[in-house]
Simulated assay, not measured.
Amino acid sequence: MKVILTHEVTGLGGAGDVVDVKPGYARNFLFRRGLATAWSVGAQKQIDAIAKNRETRAVKSLEEAQSIKGNLEAKTVTIKAHAGKEGRLFGAVSTGDIVAAVKAAGGPDLDRRKVEVPTPIKATGTHKATVRLHADVLANLTLDVVAG
């Protein structure tokens, strides 16, 4: 099934890309979250408009993403979470928690869907996460999870 991505989807493509996916994935994941629309002949105009907008913002957003990357990588973000005696968390640190902690530390507003955590954060200590700021720019975050 052909779909038009309206947002960037990790491992699939960026906004405006036409990709071929299985119908169940499109119906149950992409359409429900507003990440894609069904492809049709008339939708080609939408694809062209998205591509044109992306080209005009590309240089500006690349420079902005580079500066944000420098700011994010320069500081350690502290996250307070409920933990037991041995440092194990009650639950896990979510991407929403990470975005809120970055904002509280004076960082920029981030989209939680752009934050990628390689393994679930379920213990106190220092952890790593990445933020996809631009198609070519990945920022590495250092997270310090403390009991609170």
Rank of each mutant, 00 (worst) to 15 (best):
G14R: 14
A15E: 06
G16A: 12
G16H: 06
D17A: 14
V21E: 01
K22S: 08
P23G: 13
Y25R: 00
Y25L: 00
A26C: 09
N28E: 05
F29W: 02
L30K: 01
F31K: 02
R32D: 01
R32W: 03
R32Y: 05
G34P: 15
G34R: 02
G34M: 00
L35I: 00
L35K: 00
A36I: 00
A36K: 02
T37Q: 09
T37F: 07
W39R: 09
V41I: 07
V41Y: 08
G42D: 08
A43Y: 03
A43D: 07
Q44H: 09
Q44F: 04
Q44L: 07
K45H: 11
K45T: 10
Q46W: 02
Q46R: 11
I47H: 03
D48E: 15
D48W: 05
A49H: 15
A49Q: 14
I50W: 06
K52F: 11
K52Q: 13
E55G: 07
R57H: 11
R57T: 11
A58V: 06
A58C: 09
V59I: 11
V59A: 15
K60Q: 14
S61P: 09
L62E: 13
L62A: 10
E63T: 12
E64K: 12
E64W: 06
E64A: 15
E64F: 07
E64L: 10
A65Q: 02
A65Y: 03
Q66A: 11
S67H: 12
I68F: 01
I68S: 02
I68Y: 05
I68T: 09
I68N: 03
G70M: 06
N71Y: 07
N71L: 12
E73Y: 10
A74W: 03
K75P: 02
V77D: 05
V77F: 14
V77W: 07
T78S: 13
T78P: 01
I79S: 04
